[in-house]
């Protein structure tokens, strides 16, 4: 079974440098059979980074990528609060750098059309766009997107694949929200390993729109892998979720950049 992990970070690991953090991340990944990892954001979590911090965060990921170019994929961290800096970071890290995707977190909700220039440019570069989403019982952060917010964005860009980070956390509601928007993909990462998430996602979206991710190191690889390994679905579908679907989504940009996998 080939496994690519859509959703990893460098926070919360031993080590003071990006290279040391990535070394530890890969140590654990190797134990559970993960071949490649998508990494985004820097050595600490910044929910609403300044332009300077955004650049710093991406620099840290670039250092990790340089150390492990055959194991890590990088997604550039962008912010709805700083569109000009974000566009410049797209050019620096994706158009002229090694990164292959975009990470949007909680600086601003993604249904706001002010974000559109980022999606337009990311699509031109074939960069895969990942948007964090949650539906929290106690209420979201002010700038935190819901799956419904992402549906609004996806409807404006129906030919651009977009990833629904965490499947909304509350995945029963998240899957309902994104089910009928065919350019939206479910990221299984970063929630408790509640039984049924993967079976329900496959039933709602089909086997080609579900992606394995962990949200390591905050989450164990173990608990997140179990969502797929432990699901009552055919092995062929597990392989799609673990690898084939993400590989397909990344193939355009990997091909454009000449990255062989």
């Amino acid at each position: 079974m080939r496994i690519w992990d859509l959703h990893c970070h460098l926070t919360g690991l031993p080590g003071l440098t990006p290279e040391e953090r990535a070394t530890h991340l890969l140590l654990y990944a190797d134990r559970v059979g993960i071949e490649r990892l998508c990494v985004y954001m820097g050595l600490r979590f910044l929910q609403n980074p300044t332009p300077e911090q955004l650049i710093q965060q991406n620099n840290e990921v670039l250092r990790a990528l340089a150390a492990f170019p055959d194991r890590l994929f990088g997604f550039v961290y962008l912010s709805a609060e700083h569109i000009e800096t974000s566009l410049a970071e797209l050019e620096r890290c994706v158009a002229h750098g090694p990164m292959v995707g975009v990470k949007l977190w909680v600086a601003g909700r993604c249904n706001n059309p002010s974000l559109d220039p980022l999606i337009v440019r990311a699509a031109e570069l074939k960069a895969l766009v990942f948007q964090h989403t949650w539906i929290k019982t106690g209420g979201n952060y002010p700038g935190e997107s819901t799956p419904d917010d992402l549906v609004a964005l996806a409807q404006r860009f129906p030919s651009v694949p977009l990833i629904c980070g965490h499947t909304g956390g509350n995945w029963r509601l998240g899957l309902r929200a994104i089910q009928h928007q065919p350019n939206l993909y479910a990221d299984l990462a970063g929630s408790d390993p509640t039984a049924g998430i993967t079976e329900t996602a496959v039933a709602a979206l089909g086997p080609d729109r579900v992606l394995y991710g962990s949200d390591a190191p905050g989450r164990s690889f173990a608990t997140q892998l179990a969502k797929v390994h432990g699901a009552d679905i055919p092995e062929s579908i597990k392989q799609k979720i673990f690898h084939t679907n993400l590989h397909r989504l990344l193939t355009p940009i990997l091909t454009a950049k000449g990255i062989k996998t």
Partner: peptide, 18 residues
Amino acid sequence: NAPFFYWLAAKLKLQESA
């Protein structure tokens, strides 16, 4: 914590740690 959690989530922790 089964059946609320996938049972394998606990088992795979034994593999992820040395």
